[in-house]
Design a protein around this nucleic acid. Structure first.
Length: 636
DNA sequence: ATAGGGTTAG
C-alpha cells in the first residue's frame, strides 16, 4: 500500500480522482506499480505461490518486471523443484515478442539443466541471439554430468569458433570429459595457454583427472607447484594416492594438510579411510571412525567405514557399523555382502542378500559379483549357477566379465574342468587373462599340470608381463616335482626382466606398522622373533607339523629348502604378533603375496596350540584362523 | 549467472 500512496501523491489532483474511480470499478490490481513491487517482494522472499500469482496478474496486463526479478523467481523455482512453474516463467519472460537479456536466458538454461531437461535447455540455447561463456559453460557442464563427453568436447570447439573464449569454469568442468590421455593433455595445454592453471578449481580437477587416467605423477606435479590451495585440492591429491594404491603417500599428505591447519571434512576422511583400507591399518581406521562418529557421518563416509572394517578383516566391527546405519544404499549392501564373502562367511553373505531384497533395495552389477563370489568361495555350485542364470531376469543385470569369472572359479574349484573350459569358450565376451588365470588357479588346487600348461600359454599370449602367472605356473610344476619345467618357467620369467617380488608381511602394533620382508633382518627385534619362531615350530611339530616342501619356488636341497620356508615373512609377522599383542587381541597380518600352503598349515596349527585368533589378508583372500581351522576351508 | 575432491567388484 505504501507504494500506492506514493504514486498517487505524485499525480495532479484531477487524475487522482479519475484513478480512484477507475480502480473501484475494475479492482485494485489494475494499478501497475504496486503489482510489480509486490511481485518483486514475493520473489525476494522466496514466496513461490504468491510470486506466481503476482506474475500471472502482470501477464494478464501485458506487464513485465525487471530481469533481476525474474532471475530471483527462477532461483526460487529451482530451489523448490517447481518444474511447471519454471516453464510458466519461461513463457512469461518471452511473451509479446520480448527478447530477454543473455543473463536471464542463462538462468533459464540453468533451470532446465537442474531439472534434467537437457532438451528444453538445448531448444532455448539454439534460439538465443547471444551466447556468452556462461551459456556455453552451462551446456558443457550438463553434457559432462551426463557423461556425453563427445558433445561436451564438441561444444568447446564450437564456442571458440563463435569467438567465445573458455574460462576457468569451462575448463575445470570439461576436464572430466577427457576420453583419452591425449585429450587430457590438450586440455591441459589450453589451461596453460589461458593462464588458468593456478585456479584452485582447475587445479583440483586436473589432479583428479590425471589420477583417474593413471598419471598421478602429472597430477602431483600440478599439486606440488601450488602456491595457494584449499581443502578440495588437498582432498583431490589425497584421494588420488588413496585410489591408486599408495596409501602411505596419501596418509603423509593428510598429515601435511593437517599441519597447515586445514580441517578435514567428510570427503577428505573418506579418502583417508580408503588409504587405511588399502594398507589394512585397522587401528588407524578405527581412530578415524571414532573421530567422525562424534561429528558427522554421511552415507558415503559410512560406506567407506564398512569397507575399511571388512578389508581389515574385522567383520564384527563392520556388521555393527552396518546395523547402526540409518540409511543404506546399494553400495552399503554390496560392500557388506562382498566383505562377508571375501572373509569366508559365504552363508552370511547370501543371507544378507536375501535381507537386501526384502528391504526393497535393488541389487546392481557389483552386488551380484559379491553374491556369485560367495557361492564360488564356499563351493556352492548349484546356488551359484541358479543366481547366474536368473540374474538377468530377476535383477535386470546382464552378466559381465566378473560374473563369468566367478562361474569359472566355481566350476574350477569343483574340479569340473571340461565344463569350465567349455563355459569359457561359450561366454558372450572374449576370455581375457583374468578369466584364464582363474582357471589356472583351479589347476593348481586340483594339480592339473597338463591343462595348466595350456592355460598359462594362453595367458602369456594375452598378458606377457604379468608376474603372477609365472609364479603360479612354476608353483604348479614344483607341486608335481617337475623341476625342469620349473627351471624353464624361471628362465622365461627372469629373461623377461622380472624379479620375484620379495614377500612382505606387516602387522599393526601400538599404532605402528611392523613390516617383515623375506630374508630381511632390519626389524630391531628380529633376533627374538627368530628365536620364538624356532620354539614355536618345535611346539607345532609335536602336533604333527612338517614343513611342506612343495611351496619353495626354486629347486633347493633339503635343509636349505626348509630354511627358506621357515622364514616366509608371514611366519615372522605372526610370531611378532603373538609376542607383542595381548592374548585376547586377534593377530592381523597383511601380506603382498598369496599365502603358501606351508604358512597356511603353520597358521592353522599355531591358532590351535597357542589358542589365538589369527587373520591373514593376502592380495585376494582373507584367512581367519581359529582353533586349528581356516575360514577359507583350505581352498584358495 | 557457469566450475573442483570422497563409497562397493576386478
Amino acid at each position: 500500500m505504501k507504494s500506492l500512496v506514493k504514486t498517487i501523491a505524485r499525480r495532479p489532483l484531477s487524475s487522482y480522482y479519475s484513478i480512484y474511480t477507475f480502480t473501484t470499478q475494475t479492482q485494485i490490481s489494475t494499478i501497475p506499480p504496486t503489482l510489480i513491487d509486490d511481485f518483486t517482494n514475493f520473489c525476494y522472499k522466496k514466496d513461490l505461490p504468491r510470486a506466481m500469482e503476482a506474475m500471472n496478474s502482470l501477464e494478464k496486463r501485458g506487464l513485465r518486471a525487471a530481469s533481476v526479478t525474474y532471475s530471483e523467481l527462477i532461483k526460487c523455482c529451482i530451489a523448490c523443484g517447481a518444474v511447471e512453474q519454471g516453464k510458466r516463467v519461461h513463457k512469461h519472460v518471452y511473451s509479446n515478442g520480448y527478447k530477454p537479456k543473455t543473463f536471464l536466458n542463462n538462468f533459464l538454461l540453468n533451470m532446465y539443466i537442474k531439472f534434467d531437461l537437457l532438451n528444453e535447455a538445448l531448444k532455448l540455447f539454439d534460439k538465443m541471439r547471444e551466447r556468452n561463456v556462461v551459456s556455453w559453460t552451462t551446456i558443457i557442464s550438463a553434457y559432462c554430468n551426463l557423461k556425453l563427453n563427445g558433445d561436451a568436447l564438441e561444444c568447446l570447439v564450437r564456442m571458440q569458433r563463435e569467438g567465445v573464449q573458455p574460462n576457468m569454469f569451462t575448463l575445470s568442468s570439461i576436464l572430466r570429459a577427457s576420453d583419452c590421455l591425449g585429450t587430457l593433455r590438450q586440455l591441459h595445454c589450453s589451461i596453460i595457454k589461458y593462464g588458468l592453471e593456478s585456479d584452485i578449481f582447475v587445479r583440483s580437477a586436473l589432479i583428479d583427472i590425471y589420477s583417474k587416467w593413471g598419471e598421478l605423477d602429472n597430477g602431483f606435479r600440478v599439486f606440488d607447484e601450488m602456491q595457494t590451495g584449499d581443502l578440495v585440492v588437498w582432498s583431490s591429491i589425497i584421494g588420488g594416492f588413496a585410489q591408486n594404491g599408495n596409501g602411505d603417500k596419501a596418509l603423509d599428505l593428510f598429515i601435511s594438510m593437517k599441519r597447515l591447519g586445514f580441517e578435514a571434512n567428510q570427503g577428505t576422511l573418506t579418502s583417508v579411510l580408503r588409504a587405511c583400507t588399502g594398507l589394512a591399518l585397522l587401528e588407524l581406521g578405527r581412530q578415524v571412525h571414532t573421530h567422525v562418529i562424534k561429528t558427522q557421518i554421511d552415507l558415503i563416509l559410512n560406506n567407506a567405514i564398512l569397507d575399511m572394517y571388512c578389508k581389515c578383516g574385522s567383520l564384527e566391527d563392520a556388521s555393527s557399523a552396518f546395523k547402526w546405519m540409518s540409511e543404506k544404499d546399494v553400495i552399503s549392501w554390496s560392500t557388506m555382502i562382498s566383505g562377508l564373502a571375501q572373509n569366508g562367511y559365504s552363508i552370511e553373505a547370501l543371507k544378507l542378500f536375501e535381507s537386501m531384497k526384502a528391504s526393497g533395495s535393488k541389487p546392481n552389477y557389483i552386488t551380484i559379483v559379491g553374491v556369485l563370489f560367495a557361492c564360488s568361495h564356499a563351493g556352492l555350485l548349484d546356488d551359484g549357477w541358479s543366481y547366474f542364470r536368473s540374474m538377468k531376469r530377476l535383477y535386470g543385470v546382464e552378466p559381465g566379465r566378473e560374473h563369468y569369472g566367478c562361474i569359472v572359479d566355481l566350476l574350477g574349484r569343483a574340479g569340473k574342468f571340461p565344463e569350465a573350459v567349455q563355459f569359457i569358450h561359450e561366454m558372450k565376451c572374449e576370455p581375457d587373462a583374468v578369466i584364464w588365470r582363474t582357471l589356472l588357479g583351479a589347476c593348481k588346487v586340483h594339480k592339473k599340470v597338463g591343462l595348466a600348461t595350456y592355460v598359462a600359454k594362453k595367458i602369456i599370449e594375452l598378458e606377457p608381463h604379468h608376474e603372477g602367472t609365472y609364479i603360479l605356473l612354476s608353483n604348479i610344476y614344483a607341486d608335481a616335482e617337475r623341476w625342469e619345467d620349473v627351471e624353464e618357467v624361471r628362465k622365461n620369467f627372469t629373461g623377461r626382466g622380472f624379479k620375484k617380488e620379495p614377500g612382505c608381511s606387516w602387522i599393526e602394533v601400538n599404532k605402528q606398522v611392523h613390516a617383515f620382508i623375506f630374508r630381511d633382518e632390519a626389524h630391531p627385534q628380529i633376533k627374538f622373533v627368530y628365536r620364538e619362531l624356532n620354539y614355536l615350530i618345535e611346539r607345532i611339530r609335536r602336533v604333527g607339523y612338517s614343513p611342506d616342501m612343495t611351496f619353495v619356488l626354486h629347486d633347493l636341497e633339503g635343509e636349505q629348502k626348509e630354511d627358506s620356508l621357515r622364514f616366509h615373512s608371514e611366519k615372522l609377522a605372526i610370531v611378532y604378533g603373538l609376542m607383542s599383542l595381548p592374548k585376547e587381541k586377534p593377530v592381523r597380518i597383511i601380506k603382498n603375496l598369496r599365502i603358501c600352503g606351508d604358512c597356511h598349515t603353520f597358521a592353522k596349527l599355531v591358532s590351535k596350540t597357542e589358542d589365538r585368533y589369527i587373520v591373514i589378508r593376502d592380495p585376494v583372500r582373507y584367512h581367519h584362523f581359529r582353533d586349528g581351522t581356516c575360514s577359507c576351508g583350505d581352498y584358495w
